[in-house]
Simulated assay, not measured.
Amino acid sequence: MGHSMGAGEVLTLAGDAQHAELVGRVRGWILEGPLIGLGEEPSSLKVLAGRLAGRLLPRHQIRHVVPPEHLSRDPAVVESVRNDPLCHNTGTLEGMASLLDRTAMLSTGRVRLGEQVRSVLLAHGTQDKACSYDAAMKFLERQHAVGDRTAKPYEGAYHQLHADLCKDEFAGDLVDWILQRCEGGGTSDGSEVPPSPPPPPPPPEAKL
């Protein structure tokens, strides 16, 4: 499971052909508000300047603040984020350039999921101001090789579903989705789910 930028990293791994054997051993992939497109896209000039600066001064630190009120509709959560000393909103130019490159690969379709990806759940708030809801849904629609893919929109929700007003519904949906894909699991209405095919055997141990 990955959230936001972490979900973008999860997808990049899942779509990487050189890790296909490992990916095929994972039963399910959960994406919460994945960073496939930014909520507010920066200008192409700003992106170009940032990438150039990232090559010249990769370790230079920059500050980028995501407004806490864009993360959740819960006022208590907003205040906790605003007052959290660990939310320093600081990164390097190199890290920002990598984030932009990965996001561009996902949004333009250069990352595609193969048949080794067994199931995907995409959960996204329709009013997410940090990551693009539309870009995420379009990405999932293009993944025709994945037979078991589920899109779950949360109407009116913001970026952090796990800390938004829909957090209980979101948690319940996660549990239900996971149990349906466990051996012998069932759905909320008590019906059984056909067993999934077994994962491929692990690679043989290397001999010294």
Rank of each mutant, 00 (worst) to 15 (best):
S4G: 06
M5I: 03
G6D: 09
G8H: 04
V10G: 03
T12P: 01
D16Y: 14
D16R: 14
Q18D: 12
H19R: 15
A20G: 11
G28T: 10
W29I: 01
I30C: 01
P34W: 00
G37T: 13
G37K: 07
L38Q: 09
G39T: 05
P42I: 11
S43H: 09
S44V: 06
L45I: 06
G54T: 09
L57C: 15
R59L: 12
I62T: 10
I62E: 07
H64K: 15
P68N: 10
H70Q: 13
V78K: 07
E79M: 10
S80C: 12
R82K: 12
H88M: 07
G95Y: 05
M96C: 06
L100H: 04
L100S: 01
G114H: 00
Q116M: 07
R118M: 00
S119D: 07
L122K: 00
L122P: 01
T126S: 14
D128K: 04
K129G: 01
A130Y: 04
A130K: 12
D134P: 04
M137Y: 10
K138D: 12
Q143G: 04
Q143R: 03
A145Y: 12
V146C: 06
G147D: 15
G147W: 07
D148C: 08
T150F: 03
A151E: 05
A151G: 11
H159P: 04
Q160R: 05
A163F: 08
L165V: 14
D168H: 15
D168Q: 11
E169F: 05
E169I: 05
L174S: 11
I178A: 04
R181F: 08
C182H: 09
G184L: 14
P194S: 11
P194N: 11
P197I: 07
P200Y: 05
P203E: 13
K207W: 14
L208W: 15
